[in-house]
Design a protein around this nucleic acid. Sequence first.
DNA 1: AGCACTGACTCAGAAACGTCTCA
DNA 2: GTGAGACGTTTCTGAGTCAGTGC
Length: 700
Amino acid sequence: KQERGRMWETEDLNEHKDSEKKHKEKEKTKHKDGSSEKHKDKHKDRDKEKRKEEKVRASGDAKIKKEKENGFSSPPRIKDEPEDDGYFAPPKEDIKPLKRPREEDDADYKPKKIKTEDLKKEKKRKLEEEEVSKETVALGGLEERYPEGIKWKFLEHKGPVFAPPYEPLPENVKFYYDGKVMKLSPKAEEVATFFAKMLDHEYTTKEIFRKNFFKDWRKEMTNEEKNIITNLSKCDFTQMSQYFKAQSEARKQMSKEEKLKIKEENEKLLKEYGFCIMDNHRERIANFKIEPPGLFRGRGNHPKMGMLKRRIMPEDIIINCSKDAKVPSPPTGHKWKEVRHDNKVTWLVSWTENIQGSIKYIMLNPSSRIKGEKDWQKYETARRLKKCVDKIRNQYREDWKSKEMKVRQRAVALYFIDKLALRAGNEKEEGETADTVGCCSLRVEHINLHPELDGQEYVVEFDFLGKDSIRYYNKVPVEKRVFKNLQLFMENKQPEDDLFDRLNTGILNKHLQDLMEGLTAKVFRTYNASITLQQQLKELTAPDENIPAKILSYNRANRAVAILCNHQRAPPKTFEKSMMNLQSKIDAKKEQLADARRDLKSAKADAKVLKDAKTKKVVESKKKAVQRLEEQLMKLEVQATDREENKQIALGTSKLNYLDPRITVAWCKKWGVPIEKIYNKTQREKFAWAIDMADEDYEF
DNA sequence: AGCACTGACTCAGAAACGTCTCA
DNA sequence: GTGAGACGTTTCTGAGTCAGTGC
């Protein structure tokens, strides 16, 4: 059984103090210079370095990686096309702003596409029985139009939308320090409002959050403010907080017209900035709005939570577009940091974020050609793994016996990745992020070995925090050889030592690359998720069930995958209540049904005596009523089961990222389930390529 | 030559938002 | 017919993976 919980939510005081202490030590060594570019000067932990050295020694024999291709199932056939054949910038007038962009888009661009792809189209058309309008997203090797690594030939966009400027609070909203009213400078006030807006959130009670916030807030204060405000606990943000609550309340209470006006403004913004031209398509951009300033909310026990995420200015922004495109103009009085023309990447805009020093991007929507193609490619790689997975499994089982420690560790790790769908587990910089692990970065403290547990032999108990600090807890019986190996790996180690001290993701992936071109650790997740869906669907779908029951089967298959991938969610706040509501509905329905049955019975009795047409008719209608109620009851019960089973499981992530959509499409076609029942509008847009491609015989 | 760094991309759950349903 | 709450959808942005590059 999967248990959910974030360590830090339940951690006891001692642990808390410990992590605090650790963090303070980090701070001391790290922040001496006080520069704002601290993230650049990487802090090296002594232990970590030692560990790394060991690994280095052990991995000296790494094989030289062979030349890597782009992971296509078939090598891309590169057609030599004249540069300007079809890759012109579509004249502006052609790009009509649209209310329902996607559909009309297709109509807009189809003609051009057909022009540029005459031959391919013709071939395709023969294969197609269905809507031609979806062709724009049909893939069938669009990539081959580009030489290796080239992502586009023409790219034009309007640049990002910046966060709205700060609006100072009205005079009557006061801030108090130590019980006394205090007027803050605009900059200090802005940062204070970030905190005030989060006052109801658990974050603001956390020591690290408060400390980080206060430190960064003070940087924004004037000298006088700095002198006065020395203790966060003496700050009273309640008026600010109430003001924002009132504002959001007011927003909810707005009249229809006002709401409509806002909606229209948003649509206008989307129309203008939400699309770009990539080659001869108008494509939706995923995140064209720049992240507004605020307080950093890391997940889990993040050492940087509460730090100030600064406002991004045009001067921070790098614009990427093609040379022959119109460069977006920066807001008046501002300049871009840089304009570049790099067609080996897919992003339109980038900037460097100040918390981790990492780069953020503006990229295209999942429905775009460039994302869809990549997605399709991912599943094709996973399907190639299907063909050789048996061989690979035999190989790593052999490797459990290897004389070389490194090989054994690699083999056991790969076994976990395959069997349990664990993530690869890159090393992370200590003190920069929450302490989470994946397979290669598992530590001794994360597993417990039980030679026997609950009647099973050789059980490994996993308990660690994975991505997003989601807890992975699982007791797994493993093969004896694995168990013995784990015992060996753990010998003479401290709890905080790496379990696989001779292994990292680089070594593992290099090895995988040798086993199959394009194979990496995460392909196993995709493969196992998709193959599980396919198997489960086969197993669970009962041919003569009705549609709701079929959908339940689908959800159950989906759920099996979500459990495998450990996709969890916090139980909805209203879960208990809504469950009870549903139960009372079921009870009511049962009562109705009992009544209806009684009515039917008496009607039948009447009919026996009277034998006239009228009473017969009554019997018929009562029969129908019973039937209808039975159906309704079943539907409700199905719903209840589904919901109960879904309490802590998030289906969305696997559906969106791990399950080959063609399996779903095929299943829908086979059983006559409308695709809309499984995929909503957005999902259908994202998977348009699959809906177009797969027929009911599709096999993953 | 080897590996640390980092850029570019996918994947992740929470929160905000919109819509539907039921009293 | 209406309004509140439930529930599905969309947005947001943080957290991973992985390979290329530059020291």
